[in-house]
Amino acid sequence: MGCFQSKVTRQYPGHEDPITLASQTAFSVSEVEALFELYKSISSSVIDDGLISKEEFQLALFKNRKKENIFANRIFDLFDAKKKGVIDFGDFVRALNVFHPNVSQEDKMTFAFKLYDMDGTGFIERNEVKQMLIALLCESEMKLADETIEAILDKTFLDADINQDGKIDIAEWQNFVSRNPSLLKIMTLPYLRDITTTFPSFVFNSEVDEVAT
């Protein structure tokens, strides 16, 4: 490429080469380019700066930019790997990669652990689970008696917290998830298998020689 700076690089700060991204992920080069079509549309939905802000992420998830949701916030924070307050294209592809059907259950399990370890202590603590449970109940307008919430937490921790120290470590989480595989269902997006069909316009915007795809 020499000194040539592509239009894409100038318009999209942090835009990484599709071939490099494909080599780091389960995506093919064409799939990375199709994801770029999705990225362009999300990152220009509020401010056309080539980066995804939290507001744009919420808008894409809920079709409503004002909707606050602790889970969406947590996902955003995990996607924002460089902790810049925005998601660049490389972050976007690498984070979505975890949701690819071909990625190992081990990687999905680790990502889910980080997701639920809201305070980043290396443990999923009872108060974090309670906070998430209450947020879910509010979101879905379900009302549960305090005793029921405590009973659900007791049951969950009895099952998951093997050494009964009041918090779930990564080994306990791994064990718990292996006994409850449905918990990782949200970690797989079948859409990612057909991403080139969903965003066929990538073909017209491709910057990569066909040979490389």
Partner: peptide
């Protein structure tokens, strides 16, 4: 109705905020 025997993570994983498939809906 949510039975008290339900696992907390099963409930949490039903959050709309964790369902990234909506990112792909145009």
């Amino acid at each position: 109705r949510v039975p008290a025997t339900m696992n907390a993570f099963e409930l949490i994983s039903t959050s709309q905020g964790l369902n990234l498939s909506s990112l792909f809906e145009k």
